[in-house]
Design a binder for these strands. Structure first.
Lengths: 358, 358
DNA sequence: CTGAAAGCGCTTACAG
DNA sequence: CTGAAAGCGCTTACAG
């Protein structure tokens, strides 16, 4: 009548071994204070039977509080990192009954030093964090702190981009090179191979261009060269905070190059360029951009942007925190490299991605 | 030191109300045997404080076994419905400790009668299922059984497609009309507006074309008419089991219409047409298809198919079962209409969707 | 109608 | 090194 097969419990194992449940628990979690003989006997039984621990009961009984820290750039309202933070909070909510706390630390995404400060604060906080999630925007500073965490045996997860030399518990993010490559393919599906294309990027005072943007640009170029396209590429440099300067720069660029047919920008702020194209009615310019921000979606919907390429930032953060709970609470192995799908968004399917915030 | 705020437990409420935990439990779950006065007193306290029940402890203590039935078409290896079944099994695995069993019933997807038989079996099984997930391929038969389930107060979830007149706990699937519309857009991004296009569909002996396929076709046509395209459309009818006949049909079609430039097929078996195009080297024909099947992916990778449109079948089934656990175990409200994103797959991003099977 | 007790499957001091 | 007991936050008979 009952279709659930009888589950094996610690008590069953204890009886078989002629010991108490406490002792079985000790070998199960390898916390010592068991004689070699008893240990062998219990392990023999464990090998024979298929014991599946009930991690919910375990968490209920355990007094352990987990503190997971997250180190990400400051969140502007409506900006990319706000989506990431939402994922962190969703994971925290979901893990509430497991006594998990997520503490978020922010840094200035244009300042490697500010990243370092945040990491210092994390490593000095009490209680010591059980694990750390971080967006490793800058490789040298990242290496300093991954090393420290490895010394202290604090597992860490990368989101957004990754540093190959480090050894995180897991990584969740996009293959940036490939997303740049796909961006080129989509742009040239609307443009001719010989067209003039404008590529925009934000001026970077400290020469600290983040990994991801640089890789997307490489991917874009690799599409062009692999397919022997004879397009001409012109560059425009944007300012992060001076919108007037941006407008005059773009005015000049499009005046000097009236034959520009396509535009691409590899940061999440496509709306800066799209706003210009719309205002000055440059409808003949096809544009592609990155990331599912409200401000970008507006221009996708009115056809100023033809394609947006997205990377599920909320899901990256959510899965990053969940990786820690899988590791500590559910004792599961987590795959180390987890590329998110490179989602292609158009006017026709955007609606369903917007609904998807879970 | 401990950042977890003190949680309120049933015992705390019981003390405040001057009753026992059992009585609080009775009003919490509305299972009667409580005097109006006690009930009021407890509810007053409940309204004041923010009690968050620990559903894990609740499930642990409860003896209730949940049986969820799923009614889906037969799974061919490598076929669409196998992906759905994988999602069912993943959900069952994940809910193992909650004493959840998922029982899968299959039917012949070309036979409404066979669907009805499966539903009969489900409703007659012992124990009575706590909930039923189904793919409502055929509306009239579906209505018969959704009615019965509503009478017996058995919640049900639709996946794949939905019947608007019914009232499921939830629906997980694609907006088929829109996915057909997007298919047209992608095809015409590679073809000219005036090209000749071939549309293929499987011959349907019982005139029981499933909802979804018909809607995709409508969506496709609506793109054509909305954009005033002057393309010519020719039709090809395929057989589900006679591959030789299919080849001769397609030979004839392409011989008589050498100017066919594009091809579309709205079922999951794009590989039947793509295999023909590849074999007879019709490289000048651009093709779009549906669903992330291995056999389709092969032709996406070698460029016979330009775009595949996917709908996350594994996730539909997984979320469908999870909707039941949210409802029964975690007492959460489940959104009723859940459209899956319409994923656009290309050679460049397919790899990351393949890795995504969770 | 209500409460006390036992139990879900595990962990955690504590005593020896 | 080991076991008995208490407890995690709930639910479930059972007795009254």
């Amino acid at each position: 009548m009952n279709s659930i097969p009888q589950k094996i419990k610690i008590k069953d194992i204890a009886e078989k071994a002629g010991v108490s449940a406490g002792t079985v628990d000790r070998v199960l979690h390898d916390r010592g204070n068991v004689s070699d003989e008893t240990k062998r006997k219990i392990q023999a039984i464990l090998n024979e039977i298929n014991y599946r621990p009930n991690h919910y009961a375990s968490a209920l009984a355990s007094k352990k509080v987990f503190v997971f820290c997250a180190v990400i750039p400051n969140c502007e309202p409506g900006g990319y990192w706000e989506l990431v933070e939402q994922g962190l909070l969703r994971a925290e909510q979901e893990l509430y009954d497991f006594k998990v706390v997520v503490k978020v630390y922010h840094f200035d995404q244009y300042s490697p030093d500010s990243f370092a400060e945040a990491m210092e604060a994390v490593l000095q906080q009490t209680p010591v964090p059980d694990a750390v999630l971080l967006a490793p925007l800058y490789k040298p500073k990242t290496m300093i702190y991954t090393k420290k965490m490895e010394e202290r045996e604090i597992p860490y997860v990368f989101i957004d981009s990754r540093v190959e030399e480090a050894n995180p518990l897991a990584f969740y993010g996009q293959d940036s090179l490939q997303s740049g490559y796909l961006g080129a393919k989509l742009l040239f599906s609307q443009c001719s191979d010989t067209d003039k294309i404008a590529i925009f990027s934000f001026f970077d005072p400290g020469q600290t261009l983040s990994n991801q943007i640089a890789l997307r640009m490489d991917g874009f170029k690799s599409y062009v060269s692999k397919n022997n396209l004879s397009c001409k590429i012109v560059r425009g440099t944007l300012s992060a905070n001076d919108q007037e300067e941006n407008v005059s720069m773009m005015k000049k660029l499009f005046k000097e190059n009236p034959d520009i047919k396509g535009a691409a920008i590899f940061s999440s702020r496509a709306y800066v360029v799209a706003g210009f194209l719309e205002k000055y009615k440059l409808n003949h310019v096809t544009m592609i951009g990155y990331d599912l921000l409200e401000k970008n979606v507006k221009y996708l919907k009115n056809n100023t942007i033809s394609y947006l390429i997205a990377q599920r930032p909320e899901e990256q953060a959510y899965k990053g925190i969940k990786a820690f709970s899988e590791h500590f609470i559910f004792k599961k192995n987590v795959p180390q490299i987890n590329y998110m799908p490179i989602d292609i968004l158009t006017q026709e399917n955007i609606k369903f991605y917007l609904e998807q915030s879970q």
